[in-house]
Design a binder for these strands. Structure first.
Lengths: 151, 151
DNA sequence: CTGCAAGTTCAAGTCGACTTGAGGTCAAGG
DNA sequence: CCTTGACCTCAAGTCGACTTGAACTTGCAG
């Protein structure tokens, strides 16, 4: 496969060109050269981006991800770290399950007011105790932009 | 129970005073009056805050939460909306579970490089397809501040 | 009566991950 | 050869949820 220019990478991964530049700046990906001014990417960048996407989904920050890559050239991912993240994820999952249960119940609860529902009050107590997940901050409105063709 | 001043509310809920002012400004809570300059809160604010906390954990924005309260005076929570959130949560949970599986496997995978592991590659593919959760943005470092006494 | 800790207001700053805008460059098609 | 549109750089802006700082005011312990 030929080298890819930025718009091809964007099209094939669904990652905006601006984001790709940003990632390069952060050391998450690398362009293999330029044609004139324009970046050229090796096709392997696609895999790399998948890895980034995976890392993000797993709750790693861009910086953490960059460090995994930075360790040495080849994506050297610390297995212990993975296990730790998996455990964290497990915690989160448990909490979310409890929460979902609570919500479902609240949604169909016959009590006149939620406040009269013991189940809801229990959930409330849990929330007050901080036993529920912290709730992702600063999540901007997804403006449902074009999700480009999947290659 | 007597009316509470802001630091009492903060102490009993673990919500910073600055946050309480912020919440009041946003219409999420209301102070019942002032002693001099100082806000006084009715004890019911504690329950209200638990509700806010619950809403946040469930993935509602402050604005959405405010609207639930705004509908009329008494916390009028739309059951359909709850159900919707519960479903979203369900989606998220499924994805997180897949992810956790993937991470766990990757953590113990015997393949020399993760790239040589079919299971890992499958996960990667899923990530590339956007089948994984979007990963909460803008989450600032929790600096492990004092979690004050639970009343 | 006085001092001061604890409250107040309002504007501005922070955090992470990007996006947007202005202004510039250049490879390729007509 | 010349246009043009895809790319480029760099600075600044955005989003949500708060926090922080500066400059005041005040209830109340001593």
């Amino acid at each position: 496969m030929r080298d890819l220019d930025i718009s091809e990478v964007a099209a094939r991964t669904g990652v905006a060109a601006s984001t790709l530049r940003f990632y390069e700046e952060k050391g998450l990906i690398a362009s293999i050269g330029r044609r004139g001014l324009k970046r050229l990417f090796d096709p392997s960048v696609l895999e790399r981006l998948a890895l980034v996407s995976l890392g993000r989904a797993a709750g790693f920050s861009l910086e953490e991800i960059a460090q995994m890559f930075a360790a040495d050239g080849r994506a050297k991912i610390d297995r212990d770290l993975l296990a730790v993240k998996a455990d964290e994820l497990e915690q989160t999952i448990r909490r979310l399950i409890a929460l979902r249960q609570g919500l479902r119940h609240a949604a169909i609860c016959p009590a006149r007011s939620h406040m009269e529902c013991p189940s809801f009050r229990r959930l409330l107590r849990a929330a007050a105790d901080g036993a529920l997940p912290p709730a992702a901050n600063g999540v901007a409105k997804k403006k449902a932009k074009k999700r480009p063709k999947r290659a």
